[in-house]
Design a protein around this nucleic acid. Structure first.
Length: 491
RNA sequence: GGUCUCUUGGCCGAGUGGCUAGGCAGCGGUCUGCAAAACCGCGUACGGCGGUUCGAAUCCGCCAGAGACCUCCA
């Protein structure tokens, strides 16, 4: 099987065959979160999207170095512009704690949430605050090449000058004239030659807590610098893939391109990938819009618009059931559909492990495999891959029902395929709520009740049997009678 | 206002010139003491109006509606 995969490159607005710079090795950088509050559903999207990419590239035999940063320096906030206060410092004052304490707290939550979603940790997770010196070095390189200027201890990027030699706006499809006429004049920008110039180093005002010494001033690095610096530091001056949310395309990624090009003379990134947004009532879910649901709220069902809790794997399935470049609209109905769908898939995986082989097959395993892989090869089309897996579910169930037959070799192949696809590549995991496992006391108690119920059933004492079933149901434990006896699950 | 994107059956969501994904819900059935669960089967949809074509949900134009970016954002 050939594994030439195709990726939609935002830079060219086309699908391109992906060829890593070095055969068998892939450098992947993804913009991570700014850790100043709890992670919400929107954050799950890029992390799951690029987790899938990371997993699949690895599965195909590549050695992938996946770098995902933590922004713990804080970007300037709109209303805080005049004071030069940043998000993290602002939150710190609000909660009367150290900025780094805020960072630690929300970084911990982020990590915990990601682990629950079965998002693999990246190979390197650099923090902006740990790369102040490198950021200063890049500023110096930009200044040396004549694409920056210093004013009152702050350093700005000279977009006009840059655009004379290179093309500012190539990623987001803008040209400088459009930007010139459409950029809003903001307060406190008088230092800049042009409103579209952006800060590389910002002098800290007295009340600004997060600050570092530099030759220009005590201050902090500009908004876009950390990604340019940390990506090239760990992946090289030229690397394969840079990912992130679509909302970062402009200005963040545009500025990254400008910074890298201005400092080293050529672009760093070969393929730009952008995931689309999660919407709620048709509108983008965002921290700034206040219409977000945190991951913890989803997992516990504690947000007022949620009719129930949704497990991490349900969220993961929900996200992977849509293509990463489409928007997905949040709704209880959609999440419930995902919950059911995932359950059907996972049940089939269990069924598969207990199937018995026949002399020969009446089913076509290799065609199923090929369809799944070609879906993933086509710009990581997870919904199509999942659809084919569901076709396989039908096959698995038909084999179990005796309508189809499978040979021992095919069965082994099908098992191995589902294991790698469902668990290794798509990254689902069992979320066991029933019998076995952690709560042995509960499990044994329920087994006892089920034994009593079976005895009652054997005596045709339907009253007692139904009472046990119904009252357990009231408590929140569902009894499922199967041919092989009763099974149970916490609802 | 500028740039860009989207509009698919009850809901979610793929596809992108002919071969009419998939999930959920619904309906019918199998199983079961009953119920639930599970399993099997069933649905010809592509915003409107024109055009190109032997043929369009898919290409082009216009209209309508929604959204994203232009400011921190995943």
């Amino acid at each position: 099987m050939e594994n030439s995969i195709v990726i939609y490159n935002t830079l060219t607005r086309k699908k391109e065959v992906f060829k890593p710079l070095v055969e068998g090795k892939v450098g992947l950088y993804v913009c991570g979160p700014t850790v100043y509050s709890n992670s919400h559903l929107g954050h799950a999207r890029p992390n799951i999207t690029f987790d899938l990419l990371f997993r699949y590239l690895t599965f195909l035999g590549n050695k992938v170095r996946y770098v995902r940063n933590i922004t713990d320096v804080g970007h300037l906030e709109n209303e805080a512009e005049e004071t030069g206060e940043d998000k993290i410092a602002k939150k710190a004052r609000l909660e009367q704690i150290e900025p780094m304490e805020v960072v630690q707290k929300y970084m911990n939550t982020f990590h915990k949430n990601m682990e629950m979603l079965n998002v693999l940790p990246p190979s390197i997770e650099p923090r902006a605050s740990g790369h102040i010196i490198e950021q200063q070095q890049m500023i110096e390189a930009i200044l040396k090449n004549g694409f920056g200027y210093e004013v009152n201890g702050s350093v700005y990027f000279d977009v006009e000058k840059y655009n004379q030699k290179y093309n500012y706006g190539k990623l987001s499809g803008r040209n400088l004239d459009d930007i010139r006429t459409n950029t809003r004049e903001l307060e406190g920008q008088s230092e800049k030659k042009n409103s579209f110039d952006f800060a590389l180093w910002k002098k800290a005002t007295p009340e600004h807590i997060m600050r570092w010494p530099s030759k220009w001033s005590d201050g902090f690095p500009g908004w876009h610098l950390e990604c340019s610096v940390m990506s090239t530091k760990y992946l090289g001056e030229k690397f394969d893939i840079h990912g992130g949310g679509m909302d970062l395309t402009f200005p963040h990624h545009e500025c990254e391109i400008a910074q890298s090009t201005a400092s080293q003379g050529e672009e760093a990134v070969r393929y730009w990938m952008h995931n689309n947004m999660i919407t709620i009532n048709g509108q983008k879910m965002a921290r700034s819009l206040g219409n977000f649901i945190t991951l913890d709220e989803l997992f516990t069902g504690s947000h007022k618009i949620l009719t129930q809790a949704y497990s991490p794997m349900t969220i993961r399935f929900f996200i992977l059931q849509a293509h990463y470049r489409s928007t997905i609209d949040f709704s209880n109905e959609a999440l419930q559909a995902s919950e059911k769908g995932l359950e059907r898939l996972m049940t089939a995986v269990k069924t598969l492990s207990n199937l018995t082989a026949s002399e020969k097959s009446t089913v076509d395993i290799s065609s199923l495999k090929e369809k799944c892989f070609s879906a993933l090869n086509d710009d990581i089309n997870s919904p199509i891959a999942i659809a084919h897996l569901f076709d396989g579910v039908k096959t698995i169930n038909s084999i179990k029902a005796g309508n189809e037959k499978i040979s021992a070799e095919d069965l082994a192949e099908l098992k191995s395929f589902y294991n790698s696809m469902v668990f290794d590549v798509l990254g689902f995991k069992e979320e066991q709520t029933s019998g076995s496992g952690d709560n042995a006391v509960l499990g044994k108690s329920i087994e006892l009740l089920l034994t009593l119920r079976n005895e009652a059933k054997a005596n045709k004492d339907w009253g007692t049997a139904d009472k046990i079933r119904d009252e357990l149901n009231e408590i929140g434990i569902e009894i499922k009678d199967t041919k092989d006896g009763a099974d149970w699950a916490i609802k």
